[in-house]
Structures are given as structure tokens and as C-alpha cells.
Amino acid sequence: MGIRKKTNKNPPVLSHEFVIQNHADIVSCVAMVFLLGLMFEVTSKFAVIFITVQYNVTISNNEGPEETAVNHFHHGIKDLATIFFYMLVAIIMHAIIQEYVLDKINRKKHFSKTKHSKFNESGQLSAFYLFSFGWGTSILLSENFLSNPVSLWEGYPHTLMPFQMKFFYICQLGYWLHALPELYFQKSKKEDIPRQLVYIFLYLVHIAGAYILNLNRLGLVLMVSHYFVEFLFHVSRLIYFSNESNQMGFTIWAVLFVVGRLLTLSLSVLTVGFGLSTAEKQGFDLAAGNFNIFFVRMTVLAAICFTQAFMMWKFINFQLRRWREHAEAQSLKKKQAPTKSKSKKDKANGVNGVNSHGADSPRSRKEKSS
């Protein structure tokens, strides 16, 4: 899959510029190696670990007239290989969206450097959030987690997952890991890197924590609600770049952002604080995947509360900055309005208060005749 930016100069092979310009081609070749490995018996066992979801468990389902087999999956160390492969896929998809969608829009709109980077960021994330929200919602509906909230903690530990849920978590971890090398590939500004590293780290910690601690059901619900709110924000920012007077999307996002934080805290306290504390299986058992002890529960709640507080703090600062900029713009308009009206009045009365038609007034004509 060739994704190469056309440039007049060919940088030296294996130089930084060469890697940045051709990183999608390089990553595509690496991914192709794993796919080709499936074709040969010697390497197929090794390649399967990277491409397919591991740790399959077949469970017999006796419901109904016939006995059916249902496949479930649990997590393990081999998942790191699968996450690595889908991280490569995420890099390739990132390059495709950038090359064939965002770059074409940027060339038409002629954005400034600041808007250019923000537009690319919002374009990539809005596509990812929309896809993840739709995929996660379909899993919630198929597993009836929304209609039965008790299932979020009932039967813990939830070591077994359906294929779609496990693959969803694999892709999520792969995507947020791919964001780290993208900082280099996209030539991110030094002042933007700390901010991006913070939210990448928060995503990885929370998603991996829910996956490893077998809180995958709660994590899925929280991700779906969070991704919907974030999707609205980035779509609103894309609309704002095309029409700066249209800021209705930010208002809707602000309301849903606060609702999302309250929903996250409520579900977390309900599931971890109350549900797991009254569950039948208490104690720490690494082999069984049971982490239902007081210390782990409090650590999870503290991490979630800290993250929500951090997000609210960033949100409040963002809103204050917007209001400040809006107030400055309004005051500037008020200052310009009297100046414009005064200049129009001066033009009508003439320069320095003298009427431009003063020479033709009756008094001047009388003086001339005398």
C-alpha cells in the first residue's frame, strides 16, 4: 500500500526526513511481512499470534433444543503481539486519512499553521471517535449491558469476553499506542507534545487498567459515553474552522461534557464502590483474575476521580479563555463603532467642521454680490 507524499527533493535514505515522508510505506511493508507469514506452515504459528485474537475458550450453551458452542476470550501476555500489529494498522489508516482527506481539505482552505495542526488533530480524532462510538454501542446493545446495568458488576471477575469486546480493546490499545510514534511522524510542535503525551498516557492507563483488572464491561460503557462527547467537540472545532461565527456545537458539547463527567463518576462509584464491595467473590486471586479487594477498588476510584477532576479543570480553563476572548472581541467592536460613526459625520460636514458646500450658501452669494 503506497502512501507517499510527492516532493521535489529526495531526502537521503534512512534520514529523518526520509522516514517521516515514507513512514506509511515502511510500516505497510512490516505489516505485510506478518500477513505473508500466514502463507507458510513454518511461520504461520508465529504470524497468527500477531494477527488473530488469542486465548480462545469454547463454552457449551445448553439453552434451546440443541447444544451450541460459544467462543469467548480472556487476556494474556500474547495480546501484546496482537496490539503491536494493530498499532501498525492504525499508523497506516492514519496516513490514509491524512493523505487522501485532510491534506486535500487543507490545500483548499489555506489554513494558518496553528489551524492546520488543530484541523489535522480534530480530523483524525473525530474519525476515530465516531468509529469507536458506533462499534462500542453495537457491543453494548448485543450484550444487553445497557438494559441490565447490574451486569456491570454481577458475576465479577469478568475474565471471559466475547470476540467483539476483546477485539475492541485490542484495537483501542493499538490506536493509542500508535499516537506515540505519530508525534514524530507528524512533526508535532514541542509545545504541543506535553499536552498530547498527557492525554495519550491517560487513555492507555485507563483502558489497559479496565482490560487487565477485568472491569471490561464498565470500561466499555465509560469509553462509549466519553467518545461521543469527544466526537462532538472535534466536529464542532472542524465546523468552527470553516465558519468561525458558528459556535453552537461548542455550547452543546459543554453541556454534554459536564453530563458525561457526572455519568462517569456515578457509574464508577456504583460499580466499583457499591457493586463490587457486595459481590460474592472477594479477595485477591491473580490466577482467577479476581482483584476485588479494598485497596484495588479505592485505587481505581481514586484514578477515575482524579482524571475527571483534571478534565473539569481543563474544561473550566477552556471556557474562561473563550469567554475572555469573546469579551475582548465585543469591547473592540464597541470601540470601533463610535469611530466609524464619527468619521461618517466628518465626511458629511466637511473637514474641521466646515461644510463642503459652504461656498454655495446664500450668505456667501450675498457677500460676493456686494
Rank of each mutant, 00 (worst) to 15 (best):
E191S: 12
W313G: 15
N290S: 10
V354N: 11
I49M: 05
T58C: 15
N292S: 10
E67S: 10
P194N: 05
Y175K: 06
E121K: 11
D79A: 01
N243P: 02
L160N: 05
K334C: 04
V48M: 04
V30G: 12
N292P: 05
A279K: 02
L38Q: 10
L215V: 02
D25S: 12
I105W: 10
R195F: 09
I139H: 02
F295M: 10
A179M: 09
Q336L: 10
N10R: 08
F133G: 04
F310G: 08
G249H: 02
L265K: 06
F119R: 00
R321A: 04
T299F: 14
L160E: 03
E280M: 11
D285G: 07
A302F: 06
L202V: 12
L177M: 10
I293L: 02
F163G: 09
G273E: 01
W135D: 02
T52L: 05
S370G: 12
H357T: 10
T82F: 00
G155D: 00
L141G: 08
K345A: 15
Y227I: 03
Y86D: 02
F284S: 06
S44V: 05
S151M: 08
Q330G: 01
Y203S: 09
F231L: 08
S138D: 08
I212M: 08
N290F: 00
V33A: 10
I316A: 15
W176E: 04
L180Y: 13
F167A: 13
N292I: 07
I200M: 00
D79H: 01
Y100C: 04
Y227H: 13
C305E: 13
Y55C: 04
F294Y: 12
Y184N: 05
Q319L: 15
F163S: 14
L270W: 11
L320M: 13
F274E: 03
H94M: 05
K115S: 09
A179Y: 14
C29W: 13
S268V: 05
L35E: 09
R321N: 13
T159V: 15
A47W: 11
R237Y: 15
A31I: 02
T114W: 04
Q308C: 07
L140E: 09
I77G: 05
Q330H: 12
H234V: 15
W323G: 03
F306H: 07
G249N: 02
L80P: 00
T82I: 04
A348V: 14
L265E: 09
Q319T: 11
N352P: 02
A90E: 00
L38A: 06
S147H: 10
K344G: 00
A69Q: 15
S117W: 02
K9I: 10
F228E: 03
E66Q: 12
D103E: 13
R4A: 12
W135E: 03
M161V: 11
L177W: 07
M165P: 00
G275M: 05
Y86W: 10
G123Y: 03
G249S: 07
Q282W: 06
L215S: 01
G289R: 03
K9M: 06
A254P: 00
V33R: 05
